[in-house]
Amino acid sequence: MRFKTDLKNIRTFSKLTAALNSLEKIAWVRLDDDTVRFTVIPDTGSQVWASLSVDLIFDNYHLQSAEANNTINLELPLGPLQRALKSAANSNHANLRLTKRDGIPMLSMTIHTITKEAAGGGGRSSTYDPDDPFAAETSDIFQQESLELTMKREREKVITQDIPVRVLHPDTVETIMQPKVREPDVHIQLPPLLQLKAISDRFTKLALTAAASASAGRSGGAANANPKLELSANMHGSLRLRLVTDTLDITSVWDGLDNPELDPSQLAVPLDEHPSTRFRLAGADKWATVRVDGKDWSRVLSVGRLEGRVIACFSDDHALILYVYVPHYDDASGEDCVTYYVSSYSS
């Protein structure tokens, strides 16, 4: 079993890792000849299936496995991966390979980097500036700061970050299946996630505050620590976020959003019979609604850092799925999509 690759688009990789890490600490990574897939399934909360073309984040990719279809399945802690990618962020070159240290499998990241002397930061102004040859003009009892020092040749440093991993047997992962959901009633492109997240978080905090003050008034009584938000969308470009508590009922509505066209060739049913067509014909008052957990939703929305286009698919009172299309900064055009199965609650 061999895996060795150079890294590219480290920023994108790092952001994806951060987004996944906000939901769960450990990911299942599946590597094969064409795609690298990250799957995160928390005990409670939304699960994520991210499928990226190898070319998006890897270069000079070498994979060799005895498993069927040349795949490697790994269990990988996301925190250390994120930390290692941070190290690699401004590097000249970084690669990743599967290896063993003390008998324990490791994903070893080798980073070639240069420190920035100028960006030392925090240096206390002129008097102690080591770059100033006049700073140490006198006193022979104190060490002289020579000019030569500042001319010091800067060499490349080699940083090795070893991330502990577990190699999974194909049998273990065989049973893990991507969820199947019925055709969505409404599909809509979400507004900028930063905006959506700010408002959602505001609602969640309000709900928590309201619950806390209510329970304080009633002396005891379990405060609802997991407020639910109501998300609705129609086929006429509107998205509605709503919070209802004993004392509050607030709603935020976005209009003029895009309901992307469906590609008939990709559909299991003719376009005319597709649920979204019925919702479109039923008019702007026909909403598909799901309820999501405020805190979980906030973690889901952290995927906004990827700056991709996000399509939300609503199955009324049933499910919410987000498709996040990872933007490409180079010419590559793969099917790079991060799919969020947002855990939803019945009303």
Binding site: R83, M106, P164
Partner: peptide, 9 residues
Amino acid sequence: PLHTNIAVE
């Protein structure tokens, strides 16, 4: 935790 090694020439 991450096992980190930095090699400086």
